[in-house]
Write a protein that binds this DNA or RNA. Sequence first.
RNA 1: GGACCGUUAGCUCAGCUGGCUAGAGCGCUCGCCUCACACGCGAGAGGUCACUGGUUCAAGUCCAGUACGGUCCA
Length: 859
Amino acid sequence: MNTGAPDKPSLEGLETKWADQWQNDDTYRFDRSVGRDGVFSIDTPPPTVSGSLHMGHIFSYTHTDTIARYQRMTGKTVFYPMGWDDNGLPTERRVQNYFGVRCDPSLPYEDGFEPPASEGKGPDGKAFKQQVSISRPNFIELCDRLVEEDEKAFENLWRSLGLSVDWSLLYATIDERSRRASQRAFLRNLARGEAYQQEAPSLWDVTFQTAVAQAELEDREQPSAYHTLRFKLPTGDDLLIDTTRPELLPACVAVVAHPDDERYQPFKGQTITTPVFGVEVPMVFHELADPEKGTGVAMICTFGDLTDVTWWRELNLPARAVIGRNGRFIEDAPEVMSADAKERYGRLVGKTVFSAKKELVEMLTDDGDLVGEPRAITHPVKFFEKGDKPLEIVSSRQWYIRNGGREADLNAALIERGNEITWHPPYMQSRYTNWIEGLNGDWLISRQRFFGVPIPLWYSLDDAGEPIYEKPLVPDEATLPIDPSTDVPDGYDASQRGEPGGFMGDPDIMDTWATSSLTPQIAGLWEDDDDLFDRVYPFDMRPQGHDIIRTWLFSTAVRAHFEADTAPWRHACLSGWILDPDRKKMSKSKGNVVTPIDLLDQFGSDAVRYWAASGRPGTDTAFDEGQMKVGRRLAIKLLNASKFAMGMGDLNSALSQPVTEPLDQAMLGRLATLTDECTKAFDDFDYARALERTETFFWSFTDDYIELVKNRAYGSRGDEAAQSAHAALARALDTMLRLLAPFLPFATEEVWSWWQEGSVHTSNWPDANALRDAAGSADGALVDVAGQTLSELRRTKTEAKRSLRTEIVKATVNDTAERIALLDQVSEDVSEAGAVKELVTVGGAAELAVEAELAPEDD
RNA sequence: GGACCGUUAGCUCAGCUGGCUAGAGCGCUCGCCUCACACGCGAGAGGUCACUGGUUCAAGUCCAGUACGGUCCA
C-alpha cells in the first residue's frame, strides 16, 4: 500500500499510528517454530513497577531495542519478552501507605474485604495514618490490585517508546508461573543439597523485621563514640576496654586480644569480670583483635558486628542474646547473671538500643566504671539498603542457597562461568569476579515478609507442638505454586495446622532476587513448555544496569550453574547511568521535572531514542535535551529527503535500474562500506557506533550528494544520467531506512510505507555486497573531492554575502594532480551544483584552492 | 583501603589494531527565503588531547607514575 509522500511530512502522530499498526499486525511476534540457531533471545530486565518511571528506563531499554531490531532484520526471530517486577518490599510499602493496611499472617482471609483508604486517603479525603491489620491473602490481593495500575503506566511508556517486545510473552515476578518456577527451582536446590537451613546469627533489619542478604547491605558513615569501660582482672587490677557499643555489655561472652600481644599473655586462661553485671568471662586470643586499637583488648558480645560472629564461631563461645527481633532488649536476662545483676538488667528490658545505651552509660558512671568521657568518632555501619536503622545481628533460622561464599570450589566455578559470557563492555566482568571473590557467606534467601513467593515447605510438629525442622514436608512439583500458610501437606488435613502432631507452614517468603534470578527460566517457560525453553535457552543477551551485577546478574548465574550447568546467557550488556546535569539547573527551573512521557510528546519518540542510543554501552550519559533536538532534526530530515527523492520518479522501479555515473557509483561504494561498519558494530552490540556512522553518512548524503545530483536528477543532462541518479537515490534511501530503522522506528516505518511493501522492521538488513556490485569500481574518494570542491565554491558566495543561487561566471579549481583527475570525472555535477558557468581545473597544486568570479549583483 | 572507569573545543562526545595540518554535534559569530526541508541551508571562529617521565622514525592513541572526577566493593 504505497501511499506516496505527503505534501508536508511531519513526525506528529507517528507514534500512535505505527504502535497501533504493529500491534494489529503482530509485527514483533516471536516465531516459535524456529530452531535455536535462528532465535535471538533476550532476558529483558523486569522493571520495578512500584517505582517511578524515569529517564533511566528509556535509556537502557532503547539500547536493547536497537539490538533486538537489528537481530530481527538479520533474519533471526527475536524472543523479546517483557516482565514486571512487582514482587517484594517496594510493593508492600506502597500498598501499606496507599490502602492503609498492614499484613498479619495470623489472621484469616476475609472475603470481599475493602481497604479503609485509597491513595493514602480515607473516605473523608484526609490523609489516612493508621493501618488496619489484614490477612496475607487479603494483603496480596491489594498488592495485585495496585501493581495492575502501575503496570499499565509502564506498558504505555514502552509502546510509546516503540520497544519491539512481543507482548504475548508478558510475565510478572509475582504471577503464577513465576511462583511456580521459583518454588520448583528452590525445591530442586533443596533436593540437590544446594539449599539448606541454618539457625545462625544473621544480619537483621529491626524496622522491616527481616533477615537481609550480603548483597543488600550498604555501609553508611555514622557518628558514634568510644567509651572506655573498666573490667577487673583476677588480680583485682583494672583492664580498660574501649567499645562503641556499651549497651551490649550484658551480652559480653569474652574479652579478646591478639595472640602476639605480649601485654595480655599473662592473663591466658584467666577470667575477667565485667563491670555493672559482674559476669566472669574468659580472656581469649584471636588474630582479628587489633593491638593498635584502644587498649588492644575488645569485648566480644553476641552480637555487635560480624567480627563478633566470627569470634563466637571460631572460639566456640556461648551465646547471650539481649536484642530481640524488634530491636529492643529482651525480657530474659542472660542465665549466667546473678540475681542482683539480673535486676540491673531489668532496667534495659524493652528499651531500644539507643535508650539502653544511655541507661547503661548511667549505670557505668554511677559505679565509676566509665573511664573519662566518651570520644566521638564516625565509622561505617552496616545498613539494609532500603532501611534507615543500623542492622543488628540476631540469631534466627534461615534458608540459604550456596553461592561460593563458603566453598572455594564453587567460588572458582562461578568465577569461571564469567568466561562463558561475552561482556559488553568487557571490563564489567571484573566487577562480577570481584564480587564473587569478596563473598563471605552463602546467599540468605528467606525473608520474614509477605508479598513474595512463599518458601514451599511445611514442618511436622512433634507431640509438644515444636516444629521438626530437619525433615521439612515437601510438596509435589505438580502442585506448585503453593502457599504453605493456606495449603495443606499430603497426609494432613487443615484442622491439624499448628496442633501437636500436626504441621505448620514455613512462614517466610523468598528474597525477591531468588525469583528474579530465574527470569530466563520464567520467560522461557522452563518445565512448563520444554519445546519453547529449548529454543531460547541459554539466552543470547542479558541487558541490565551495572549496579546490579552483584545481585541480579550474579544470582542468575548461580541458578543457571546449578540447574543447567551453563551460563544463563552468551552476552551480558551493561548499560550506564543517566547523569543529570539538570540537577544543578533544577533549582533554577523550580523543580519543573520532566517525565519520560512528556519528553516523548515534546520531542517525539524517535528523537528521545536517538539521544538514548548515542550513549555508548556501559557509559554514563548526560541527560541532554539538545541531543533530543538533534535526533528530532534527523528524523524530520529523513522525511523530507525521502519526499524529495520520491519526487524524482518511481523509486521502486529505479531500484533495479543500472547506476552509471561515477559520482553515483562512488556514493554507493561508500554506502557499502558504511553497511559493513554498522553490521560489525551491531554484531559487537555497539549500537552507538552504528548510529554515529550512519548519521554522519546521512548528513553528507543530504548536504552534498543530493545537492550535487539534483540538477542531473531533474534531467539537465538527459534521461540516462537522470536514471542513474534515480537508481542511486533509491538504493541509498532504501539502505539508509534499514540502517536507521533500529534507532528511528517510527520515521523509517513512515517513509517505508510511502513506497515499499510491508514493514521496514521485518525487512532484511542491507546487503553490502549488492551495493558494491551496483557501485562497480568507482573510487569512493570522488565523493570527497566533489563535496570539498562544492564547499569551496559555496564559500566564495558566502564570503561575498551572496545567495548560494548566485551564478559563478568562471571558477578555477587548483588541487593536486591526483584529486583533479577525480574531479574531472564529476566536474559536470560539481558545476551544476555550484551554478558554475565555466569550470577550469588546474592540477599540480599542493592543496585545494578555488578562485571564483561571481556574476554581478543585479538590484 | 581495594577494584574498575574516565580526564580531547564553552558544552556533550567520536577518534577501533600508534601514521600526513586532531574530528562531529550543540552553543557562538556572520550570511542566505537555493523549486525536499526556515522544525531549513551555507560559511567561520574556537583545542599546548589533565600532568610527568618512558618506548618508538612517529604517541591523543602503548607503558609507568601523579593529580582530579566517578562507580562498585570493603
